[in-house]
């Protein structure tokens, strides 16, 4: 068994454990075993309803969103050849958030929010390539992503600024913090396939991403079509991240941390890290969501995006410091 298969299976097992743990954790007391039993109809109507309609969609959404962020982060870090790249770097997170915020601003209702977020993400990636141009270098693409994100964030701030009433304001502000609370089967029908499609698209480029470790010229000389790889990676990341923002809002740092932790298990090959990073992302996000639920027991609910940022940002500091030694 090679390292990639081992790492994938290992992190898949971890994701499964945290999935079951997330099923079993919450205000209504039923352990992981009880929750799984309730999913299959045992333990009384109340337990069955909670397990099937609240816990299961929430844990499944956690796994899907975490998987999307982990895979997108791994793909983008591989393409940019930079461990500091995050799915937010190409502006998708911000533009998808803007789409959702516009829907909330105009009170279009929660049915429209996911669609608006995906539309925003798609417009963001079109703007990205319009700004950067087709033959853009990695650096130009990053700068274009920063510009797209800055503009989307400015418009999001404008929407907050101009919010018609305190209700809309708080709705937008809370939505931006990211949460799995509103997980439901219907949203999952839209976001699930898109996330899986996005991860599958990213996986088609794993060999090309490994070859890119040698630099763009060497990769091109080995038969990698670098502009095509760039386009496919950005589209795959946009599908996965756009759909995850649509379902759960902007959740930072999972996409940065998961690939970084997964990569050593596959000998640091960036393409081989995509699937392990997806499973690790799924595990981390459900772990964070368990943390959110545990902390919410103490009063004011903490939002998922707030927790991942609180834990993830110090990790980012550490990553920059350790990377400084490597590139010095």
């Amino acid at each position: 068994m090679n390292a990639e298969v081992k790492a994938t299976l290992g992190f898949a097992a971890l994701a499964a454990i945290l999935f079951v743990a997330a099923l079993g954790f919450g205000a209504y007391p039923m352990g992981p075993v009880g929750a799984v039993a309730a999913l299959f109809g045992a333990g009384g109507d109340e337990a069955v309803a909670i397990a099937r309609e609240i816990r299961f969609p929430r844990a499944l959404l956690g796994a899907l969103v975490g998987g999307a962020l982990g895979a997108a982060g791994a793909g983008l870090q591989g393409y940019f050849r930079n461990p500091l790249a995050d799915p937010g770097i190409v502006g998708v997170t911000s533009s998808a958030s803007l789409g959702a915020v516009i829907a909330l601003y105009f009170g279009l209702g929660f049915d429209i929010v996911p669609l608006a977020a995906m539309g925003g993400g798609a417009l963001g990636v079109i703007a990205l390539f319009a700004v950067a141009g087709r033959g853009a270098s990695a650096l130009t693409l990053i700068l274009a992503g920063v510009a797209v994100a800055a503009f989307a964030n400015a418009l999001t701030a404008l929407a907050l600024n101009m919010a018609p009433n305190p209700w809309a304001l708080s709705e937008i502000a809370y939505w931006l913090m990211g949460s799995l609370r509103d997980a439901n089967a219907r949203d999952m029908m839209i976001t699930g396939p898109l996330i899986i499609a996005g991860i599958a698209v990213l996986l088609t480029q794993r060999g090309a991403l490994d070859a890119l470790s040698l630099g763009e010229d060497a990769a091109a000389s080995l038969g990698v079509n670098v502009p095509r790889t760039r386009l496919i990676v950005v589209i795959g990341a946009t599908l996965a991240v756009g759909a995850s923002v649509a379902a759960a809002g902007a959740i930072g740092f999972i996409g940065l941390v998961a690939p970084h932790l997964a990569r050593p298990f596959v000998g640091h090959a960036p393409g081989k890290a995509i699937l392990p990073a997806a499973f690790l992302g799924a595990a981390l996000l459900n772990a964070a969501d368990i943390g959110v639920r545990a902390l919410s027991g103490f009063g004011t609910p903490i939002y998922l995006g707030v927790l991942t940022a609180l834990v993830g940002a110090p990790f980012f500091f550490w990553l920059i410091r350790s990377n400084r030694a490597r590139t010095a």
């Binding site: 930079n82 490994d210 890119l212 470790s213 000389s221 080995l222 000998g267 640091h268 960036p270």
Partner: peptide, 25 residues
């Protein structure tokens, strides 16, 4: 086969893993 001037590997991979990339085509 082309050996460019760039000598930095983007990731701390093993020598053998880098050599194996030569088989990409």
């Amino acid at each position: 086969a082309y050996l460019p001037q760039e000598r930095r590997a983007a990731w701390p991979m093993s020598g053998r893993a880098l050599v194996a990339l030569g088989r990409h085509p």
